[in-house]
């Protein structure tokens, strides 16, 4: 799949729930609909919980890549305003 360029990058690999999603949500709120955010997070709970919450709040994951031993990159398109 083609590389998608993110306009902003957020590293939450050092955070745990609920800070992980709260930081992601706040970062997305500062962006425009359709703008791309890259989120770096660890596998397991952060990956599954943040992904689920992103969908629930109307944002869209475009790509998921494993970029380290237990680190993933999520490419997220910011959703429309609710």
């Amino acid at each position: 799949m083609a590389e998608i360029k993110a306009t902003k990058r957020l590293d939450i690999t050092g955070d745990c729930c609920p800070i992980t999603f709260v930081k992601t949500k706040l970062a997305l709120e500062e962006m425009q609909p359709g703008e791309i955010l890259e989120v770096l997070l660890t596998e397991g709970e952060p990956l599954s919980n943040v992904s689920r919450s992103l969908k629930a709040e109307g944002h869209k994951i475009l790509q998921v890549k494993k970029i380290g031993a237990n680190i993933y990159s999520l490419i997220v398109a910011r959703g429309e305003e609710q």
């Binding site: 596998e43 990956l47 599954s48 475009l62 998921v64």
Partner: peptide, 8 residues
């Protein structure tokens, strides 16, 4: 084919 389901 975003890859998410396989990862979670």
């Amino acid at each position: 084919l975003c890859g998410l389901c396989q990862s979670i």
